[in-house]
Amino acid sequence: MLLEVNELRVSYGNIKALHGLDFQIDEGEIVCIIGANGAGKSTTLKAISRMVPVEAGTKMTFQGKDLLQYQPDKVVSKLGISHVPEGRRLFENLTVTENLMLATFARRDREQIALDIKRVFSIFPRLEERQTQKSGTLSGGEQQMLAVGRAYMSGRKVMLLDEPSMGLAPLLMMSMFEALKEINSQGTTILLVEQNARLALQFASRGYVLENGHMVLEGPSKELLENPDVKKAYLGG
């Protein structure tokens, strides 16, 4: 087991966002969490990257290590868990290359960094063309590529992706998921959350369904795609 989460509880003030989630991810898998707006998908990812405090009783282990012992930056730099946040959140005042290099802040392996940058540019050739441009001037699709590329540079045992399809035209969406498949085939485990449930389930091998802070269903993607409740609630009948 790569990542094991038990009894994950998160509250914002008096509002309970997550009511004790259990899930686990194996090495090399692509897993998705689907659910409606406000179900707690983003919060789940933020809890793993330690960007929101979790309540007592929550247990998260990554490769046998207690995730809760790590500060947010160490989750990235020591454990290799990267996070593509909702809305991309690029540093628009920095160039494409600077965004990628910033993600290597804690790394000291210069040669490997150079290789990784090449790798990102081979997955997303558009970024290479725009490497000296400020990232704020990129198109929406290019920005999403850079957000994924940046996460790839920061650590790539696991990549957490928050709505990678958001704001992308269908064709771009498909090529983005192709790129993610390629990154996964190089050994990066992927956990993504999506409102676009059909797309996510076609891409992932397993899925969880999150409703109002509860995991209500889980299973292989094929089963979830056939499940009448899932069909009705998330796949438009």
Binding site: Q71, F91, N93, M101
Partner: peptide
């Protein structure tokens, strides 16, 4: 790279830890 991290923080403080920056 510290300067780069400072510029990044000036733009969007909250995301900087996700880059492995303490």
């Amino acid at each position: 790279r510290w300067g780069m991290a400072m510029r990044a923080m000036a733009f969007d403080f909250a995301v900087v830890p996700l880059m492995g920056v303490p």
